[in-house]
Structure formats: structure tokens, C-alpha cells
């Protein structure tokens, strides 16, 4: 049996008295190492909030999150990232004053970010390797031609891919992607789908929130369904497709159409 890389244990998060995540008993699920988990649910189900609770952008009101056995209760977002968690945001985030290439390089943990190293100039030794790595990751997400461009000139879909690249360059143990295909044109979408399948095959752990169900049910190996911040169902894509509760609550509209 593989160990659980991520454990979400009876987590509750309230916004002004309303429970966004957790319902009565709190939200619990585990993610064994190497899993490609699809996280689905209607708008407002609490998917993005769950990502924020795992990555430390928000702290749970109750319950706890463990990453590789480490309790994240007191960890800041930057510390959780340093523990090996990578994530993207539903609204893509970029650093507008940096070039596309630098937007990715900055994701790598460079020794030159220490004052002493910066002054001594010794960071130059590793900078070339970082550039090559960043360029390779940008090629992987299809942004090779945009390397020297200003991020302001990227489309919404390209910004999403840039954010994925910035996380991939860090080699995270677990990668959380929030609606990576939203606003991405179909050719990039199939590219993304290939990348996710490859990352999974490399043994990486992934959690992907998607609106595009067919995209996810085809490539994920486990699915968690949220509704009103609570776990509605979980299982393999085949089990989810056959689950009555899911069909009525979520797939219903799709099936009727």
C-alpha cells in the first residue's frame, strides 16, 4: 500500500458564519502518493477554498491538513510550498514586471536569492542551468516562442500554462491545478491533458479541479465530488459515472443535454 501524501482531516472553513467547506462533520479525504485525483463539484461547492486550505492561503477553522505527515496548522503558504506543494490559481497569477522566462525561473529556488550570494556573484554558476530548465519546461507547455515576451501580451490560456510551468520547474511532490483548462483553446487543452498524463506516469501526485468533466474523467484515476462544501461521493471515474447521487446532483444536466 502506498502512503498518503496528503490527508485532509475533518476540515471546516466558515466565511462570516456560512460554512464554505466542511458541512457538519468536516471535509475528509486522503490522497495516496502517485494519485491523479480529480476534484469536481458545481460552482461554489468549495473546490477553490479547499485548495486554499491545503496550500495555506487560508487556515481551517477546525480540522487539520497533513502533507507527507507534517501538520500544516502553523505553516505559512511559503513554507508549505517549500515542503513540496505546488498550486495554481483559478484566476491565473503572473509577475508582470518579469519576462515570461523569468516568470518561470523565479519559481526555482535559486541560491542567488540570499543576500550574500547575490553580492558575491556566485549565483551566476547555477543561473545557466536554471535557464535551461525553465526553457525546457516552457517548451513542454507550448510557450517556447513566447520566452522573451512580456507577460502582458499573453492570452488567458497562455497565462495558465505559464503558471503551470512556474510550478513544474520547482518539481513539486504534489501539484494542485485549479481549473487549468478554463479559457484555454482546444489545441492547448489536449497538450495540457498530455502533460497531466505524463506527470501522472512519472509518479507525481496531482489534484485537478475541473469544470470540464469529460476531460477529467478520462485521465484521472480517482475522483472526489464536492457539493455545498461536503463530500458527495468518491471513487474511480467509472464508479463516479455510475453513482446515482452524482448523476442527479451534477451530471444530471449534462446527461439530459
Amino acid at each position: 500500500m502506498t502512503r498518503d501524501l496528503l490527508v485532509v482531516d475533518r476540515v471546516i472553513k466558515r466565511f462570516g458564519g456560512l460554512k464554505a467547506v466542511g458541512g457538519d462533520d468536516g471535509l475528509s479525504f486522503t490522497v495516496p502518493e502517485g494519485t491523479f485525483l480529480g476534484l469536481i463539484g458545481p460552482n461554489g461547492a468549495g473546490k477553490s477554498t479547499t485548495f486554499n486550505l491545503i496550500s495555506g492561503v487560508l487556515k481551517p477553522d477546525e480540522g487539520k491538513v497533513l502533507l507527507d505527515g507534517v501538520d500544516l496548522a502553523k505553516a505559512r503558504a511559503s513554507e508549505i510550498a517549500a515542503l513540496g506543494l505546488g498550486r495554481t490559481f483559478q484566476t491565473p497569477r503572473a509577475f508582470p514586471s518579469l519576462s515570461v522566462l523569468d516568470n518561470v525561473i523565479v519559481g526555482a529556488d535559486s541560491a542567488g536569492e540570499r543576500v550574500g550570494m547575490a553580492f558575491s556573484g556566485r549565483w551566476r554558476d547555477s543561473e545557466g542551468a536554471l535557464r535551461d530548465k525553465a526553457a525546457a519546461v516552457l517548451a513542454r507547455v507550448g510557450l517556447s516562442e513566447r520566452i522573451n515576451d512580456h507577460v502582458g501580451s499573453l492570452s488567458g490560456g497562455e497565462l495558465r500554462m505559464l503558471e503551470v510551468a512556474r510550478q513544474l520547474v520547482r518539481d513539486p511532490k504534489i501539484l494542485l491545478l485549479d481549473e487549468p483548462t478554463a479559457g484555454v483553446d482546444p489545441s492547448l487543452q489536449s497538450k495540457l491533458s498530455n502533460i497531466l498524463v505524463d506527470l501522472h506516469a512519472e509518479g507525481r501526485t496531482l489534484i485537478v479541479v475541473e469544470h470540464n468533466l469529460h476531460f477529467l474523467l478520462r485521465i484521472a484515476d480517482r475522483v472526489v465530488v464536492l457539493q455545498n462544501g461536503q463530500l458527495l461521493s468518491q471513487g474511480t471515474p467509472a464508479e463516479i459515472k455510475a453513482d446515482e447521487k452524482v448523476i442527479t446532483a451534477y451530471l444530471g444536466a449534462d446527461h439530459a443535454a
Binding site: G112, M117, A118, R170
Partner: peptide, 26 residues
């Protein structure tokens, strides 16, 4: 010298978007 190094890149990132900078461990 400081700003031309990766240090300058990191502080630019922090100024541009703190949440995104934290998400890459800054």
C-alpha cells in the same frame, strides 16, 4: 549588483504578487 541578481528577481515577484510569490516558496 543586488538587483541584477536572482535576489532582484525575487523581490520583483514579491512586489508584483505576494500570493503568487508565496505559492513558489518565497
Amino acid at each position: 549588483r543586488l538587483l541584477a541578481s536572482p535576489y532582484g528577481r525575487a523581490i520583483d515577484a514579491v512586489r508584483d504578487d505576494e500570493t503568487a510569490a508565496e505559492a513558489i516558496g518565497k
